[in-house]
Design a protein around this nucleic acid. Structure first.
Lengths: 332, 332
DNA sequence: ACGACCGGTTGACACGTTTTAATTAGCGCG
DNA sequence: CGCGCTAATTAAAACGTGTCAACCGGTCGT
């Protein structure tokens, strides 16, 4: 493998390396004739710019990192689409990382991103301790929280999860439920604790005791976790209704209950969260709480790149969307 | 932002930059006392190695590219898990790219990967023209085809799609179907044409005319495409059975048919492909053709990294798995 | 006691690009 | 005809790391 660099191109085109660099980065500064000569040399030699060298010289790359809790969750895939569209439009790249809800994997990913000298990081933190992120920010890497509200000195884009939990549970109560269960991942995940807070608030408004909400915590917020939760529900005795912290959990629960002969919604009402595409196609179409997912990614990225492009004149914003109840068969 | 590099660390630890580099890359060559002094300096200064400089010096990065047809498809997400596990275990990183079945986006992605000087590329090609990939390979970037059989001079890991199409359609015929429809993405996608070939072969074995298979081609192999196909089926007149080139298409078809009052499988039998997790939880649990998805990613990555580590002593392999029929309600 | 040897460390250079200041060529105008 | 001006191009100096040959002080073997 012969390494063809900028100077081989220069030699072939009969110009200096600097001119080749100009053709690549500020074509308007070089005479048309020279430019086309250089471009031809590039084609003939199959030259590809060395990104590491550019990045080294520039001090930072034209990439941003996106760290999500679970790439297997369609919610985050949709967020990633929003991110990717904006990032591509601004001629940057995305490095997608999966933390799998684990703080250790998260910090490993952040280290890699720091080594790559990304311009900024979009992240849904796995734990409430965001100190390492703020350290990153102090080292000059812009940070925006996605689906995680922040305070004051950092940008964030989120959806009101307390409100979401509240409308979900209010809906279940209006359907006649009195004894409820809340299925979620670890409480350390903010989405889980907030949605639970909303649920409790709905109970309170309805004059029901907080004890009316049974907590079922599973280690991972996916369909397997949901199935485990479903088995717990079966052995512990069924409530009137189940509120799941996301749709994957709800689908898992639905599956186990159905196999055990429990009818949804007649025996147990069920509602999920995120309104992923598959929910409407489920065995029993799933009620859910819809979030502006694509927008979340899109706006977070715009905030991030704006901050990168003008770090001084940038005012941190905390944006909060409102979720929306989607009622289907599983709860009516 | 002060840039703290290897020499600031060296100065603080009272050693030369070369020694710091050795601590980072070959810790065994440096005396324990010196090493811990350097490590402490690293911690105190919050030093993070500059990946671009390493890559530049080394000539290639410790990353591989993974280019898939659709990150929204759980099939590829599962492949990506297999890739990620192996890549992480070998202390590398993966850059995930989405070609969206478009050759243009694919080549854009490949250019970025080439600029990043990745060690190798795992790719499910969007079109049959793989010449640009072979050019990449000649430039020293290892290439492994994923879910795409190759010939001779390149590694590949695939599943026998002709056999998959055949067992799917044989199953439908055994269930009594005579007039069939095949819903797929563009014929240029190899998976589509191969599965169709298998379907035709099954028809032939059963002594049925090739005209018994109606083709419905949609631009994208996702649930939206499936819904479009479903509407076409409704307006063109229903066949006895529908074979979809993947589960997302099948879920879309199922949805439209159900809404129109068509009963599955009584009025129309339906089978998908990939056996994604959601298929078993669908309104009518979906029959499908299962592939060793995680293995696909895992083995492809091992092949790739082996080739990178020993380019000379590497013999290209073409691995072909056999798919497996999974019968559920939608076809029985 | 002397040379060979060895583990540990150093310094300098190379990797490929971008950028800045300097140089040259071209041109109109006095 | 020469002056100054602009446009085009160039040469050289970074960016931060990895490597390699050289070096140094000490230990072992004869």
């Amino acid at each position: 493998m012969v390494t063809v660099g900028i100077k081989e191109v220069a030699q072939r085109a009969g110009v200096s390396p600097g001119t080749v660099s100009n053709v690549l980065n500020r074509p308007e500064r070089v005479a048309a004739a020279t430019r086309s000569r250089v471009e031809q040399a590039i084609r003939e030699l199959g030259f590809v710019r060395n990104g590491s060298a550019s990045t080294l010289r520039a001090g930072q790359s034209r990439a941003v990192g996106l760290v999500v809790l679970d790439v297997g969750n369609p919610f985050f895939v949709e967020v990633a689409r929003g991110v990717d569209d904006v990032v591509s439009a601004r001629d940057h790249a995305v490095i997608l990382c999966n933390s799998g809800e684990s703080p250790e994997k998260e910090s490993r990913n952040l280290r890699v991103l720091a080594e790559q000298r990304v311009r900024g990081v979009l992240i849904t933190p796995a734990a409430d301790d965001t100190s390492s992120l703020l350290r990153l920010r102090d080292r000059g890497v812009a940070v925006v929280f996605v689906d995680h509200p922040a305070s004051g000195d950092v940008c964030s884009v989120a959806v009101d999860d307390v409100a979401g939990g509240e409308i979900a549970v209010r809906h279940l109560i209006e359907g006649g439920a009195r004894r409820l269960a809340f299925v979620s991942g670890p409480r350390a995940i903010r989405q889980c604790s907030d949605r639970r807070r909303g649920a409790l608030r709905a109970l309170e408004s309805a004059g029901l005791p907080a004890g009316g909400l049974a907590d079922i915590v599973v280690p991972e917020m996916n369909a397997h976790g949901g199935q485990a939760a479903g088995r717990t529900l079966l052995s512990d005795g069924l409530p009137d209704a189940v509120f799941c912290a996301n749709d994957l959990l709800a689908l898992g629960v639905l599956r186990v209950l159905s196999q055990a002969g429990v009818r949804v919604p007649q025996d147990v009402a069920l509602i999920g969260y995120d309104d992923i595409e598959f929910s409407s196609a489920a065995a029993v179409p799933l009620s859910s709480v819809r979030q502006p997912t694509y927008q979340l990614g899109k706006i977070a990225t715009e905030l991030l790149l704006d901050e990168c492009d003008d770090p001084e004149g940038h005012a941190h914003q905390q944006i909060m969307f409102q979720p929306e109840l989607v009622v289907r068969e599983s709860s009516s």
